[in-house]
Amino acid sequence: MINAERLVQEYGGSFRALDDVSFEIPRGEVVGLVGPNGAGKTTTMKILTGYLVPTSGRATIAGHDMIDDRLAAQRHIGYLPESAPLYKDMLVQDYLVLIAKLREIATRDRQRRLSAVIDACALGEVLTKPVAHLSKGYRQRVGLAQAMVHDPSILILDEPTSGLDPNQILDIREMIRGLGQEKTVILSTHILSEVEATCDRALMIVAGRLHVDEPLETFRRGHAVLMRVLGQVDDLRERASTVAGVQRAESIVDETGNTAVRLHTDAREGLLSTLGSCARDAGWTIIELTREHHDLEDIFRSLKLEKEEATS
């Protein structure tokens, strides 16, 4: 459905925003584009939607080349740009009608399509309000409605949940999951839990390069465990790192006078109880033993470490 082939994007001749990025996304898959800010997520989306022509490489959408056959390719796509830019002076309903007209939706289908997206995005209450008066959450939903008016087979959503409150985030995620039943969706985010909650697969982009293109299970490996014991225990790090399943242990500064380590583990079953019995044998009093919520930063850090290890 979506094919990116060796995309390279250079800005100003020297800075490479994207460096040889290739991937393929089959019909009906929900894919998360993750990476730190400035990694190239938005650039990738701008190329896939035809806003930007890459320095080299090509993007193909539903069999249409984005450069040679841009209009045909763009008809298949609904796009929500970052921070949902809208005409602030327009009423919500007028804006959606405008987009429907520009999308060449036949007049007889227009009302049906508009009601469908107004329903899906829960915009019923704000239809006659100017966009300028809407909250961030509503604007995001108007942006989504705009992307879905023509019932596209592909949705490209740049940071669809940024700036929303937790309830709104849950709403949008649920909506994306629903859309993923029949549509191909690419969304970008820097929140890993978002990818886990909504996507089948994740593409990680760091500094313009594609790092991971695998199903999400990959991310679940390499969990970190935080272990904190009472008092000053000098050999905690050393002994904990010998436990089976622990790959690496690092000391953490504890200002309360206790001792803490972060253990990078392979997330095998029963690891926490193994650690518990190890502590009992050693005579430590555990005051905290938790699986850390592994976030993107950890993965970026471990990617970086792997890379450094590989080069040294």
Partner: peptide, 14 residues
């Protein structure tokens, strides 16, 4: 400036 051009430029319009 407001970014709405991105919507316009990604619609199938010449």
């Amino acid at each position: 400036k407001t970014g709405t051009y991105e919507v316009l430029a990604t619609l199938p319009l010449t």
